[in-house]
Computed example of a mutant assay.
Amino acid sequence: MNEMLSSTANLRDHSEVATLISAFFRTLDEQRFDEGWAEAYFTDDLRTTTPLGVAEGIDAVRHLEEAIGRFAATLHISSDVLFRAEPGARTARASWNAHMTHVHLDSTLRARGEDANPLFTVGGTYEAELRRTEEGWRFSRMSVRAVWTTGEPPTLPG
Rank of each mutant, 00 (worst) to 15 (best):
R12P: 02
E39T: 14
E129L: 06
A111E: 13
S7Y: 04
V17Y: 00
A67G: 10
Y126Q: 10
D13Q: 08
V81F: 01
V144E: 11
R141T: 14
R131W: 00
G57Y: 02
F120D: 04
I68F: 02
G88F: 03
D106W: 08
L82R: 15
S95Q: 15
G53W: 07
T149C: 07
H63M: 11
W37F: 14
P154D: 03
M142A: 10
R110A: 13
L75N: 11
R141I: 08
E114V: 11
F25Q: 14
A111Y: 05
H14G: 00
A94K: 09
R32C: 11
R138L: 12
L46Y: 01
A89H: 12
T50E: 06
G69L: 08
E30R: 15
L82V: 15
E152C: 00
P51N: 12
S79N: 09
N10E: 05
P87I: 13
F71W: 14
R47V: 15
S140Y: 04
V81E: 10
E65Y: 01
R93I: 12
F71T: 04
G124A: 02
H63S: 14
L119Q: 08
G36P: 01
L46C: 04
L46N: 06
N97G: 13
I58P: 02
H104Q: 08
G88E: 14
R26K: 12
R26N: 06
L105G: 02
L52V: 03
D106T: 14
A146G: 05
A89I: 12
A55C: 01
T43K: 01
A116L: 05
V147F: 01
F42Y: 15
G36H: 00
D29M: 07
N2V: 07
G36F: 05
V122T: 14
R32T: 13
V144G: 10
D59G: 02
S6A: 15
A55E: 05
S140D: 10
R62S: 10
L28I: 15
I68C: 08
F120V: 09
P51Q: 12
F33R: 12
L5V: 02
P51H: 03
N97C: 13
G123H: 06
D115V: 13
P51S: 08
R93D: 13
S6V: 05
A98W: 02
M4I: 15
A18K: 12
T149G: 02
V122R: 06
W96G: 09
L11D: 06
P153K: 08
M1S: 07
G88M: 04
R47E: 14
E135D: 15
G151E: 02
H63P: 01
E65F: 00
E129M: 02
V54S: 09
R138F: 03
N97E: 08
R112W: 06
T49K: 11
V61F: 03
V61L: 11
R141V: 13
P87V: 08
R90N: 15
T74K: 05
L119W: 04
F25W: 06
W96D: 11
E114S: 06
P51A: 00
E16G: 03
L130H: 08
M100D: 06
A67V: 03
T125D: 08
A9D: 10
P157K: 09
R131N: 03
